[in-house]
């Protein structure tokens, strides 16, 4: 009995020491989730590095839900709350320039993600117009032609 008690008493500091050793260790957990990555660029194609990002949730579009800064490539990733479905507003701003993008998070996507248990990364850019350079070129030509047409119209009137 005496030896048993001694054994128990000697074990206590050893166990306590083990607990402390565990606290100094590392522990990594993981879970797969649904993330949204945005890429902010200027119209010229230059990435908006170190631009401030503010994310607003669909449930409270007036209060920032998360804030951060883009990396040098203009990328910023955040994990939205899967319970809040709707339009997530992301505002990117740097020196007074920037854009706001609305990213819809649909109910259907949530079901797919939860049933397949796979991570979904949605990519979007801050280009709200989303036009290709060719489309922009055509629109520019149309706009210029509108102005030239106006000029020609008033010149014709003047010549009469």
């Amino acid at each position: 009995m005496r030896y048993l008690l001694l054994g128990v008493l000697t074990c206590v500091p050893v166990l306590a020491g083990m607990g402390e050793a565990v606290a100094h260790g590392s522990n990594i957990e993981y879970r797969q989730t649904e993330a949204i990555q945005i890429t902010a660029k200027y119209d010229s194609g230059t990435p908006m590095g170190e631009a401030q990002v503010t994310v607003y949730s669909p449930d409270d579009p007036a209060t920032p839900w998360v804030q951060g800064v883009t990396d040098e490539q203009g990328n910023f990733t955040f994990v939205p709350d899967p319970d809040q479905r709707g339009n997530w507003e992301v505002k990117v701003r740097q020196s007074g320039h920037g854009d706001i993008i609305s990213i819809p998070l649909e109910e259907q996507e949530a079901e797919t993600a939860s049933t397949s248990e796979s991570a979904t990364i949605t990519q979007a850019t801050t280009n709200t117009t989303g036009y290709s350079p060719l489309q922009k070129g055509v629109m520019a030509v149309v706009g210029v032609w509108g102005c030239v047409g106006t000029a020609l119209f008033f010149l014709r009137k003047k010549g009469e």
Partner: peptide, 22 residues
């Protein structure tokens, strides 16, 4: 008043397109 409109229209076109040239 309409005499300068052709000039104004052409410069509006230049102003409009200038924002696309980086």
């Amino acid at each position: 008043p309409t005499a300068n409109i052709p000039k104004a229209a052409l410069l509006t076109a230049a102003f409009f397109v200038a924002s696309l040239i980086h």
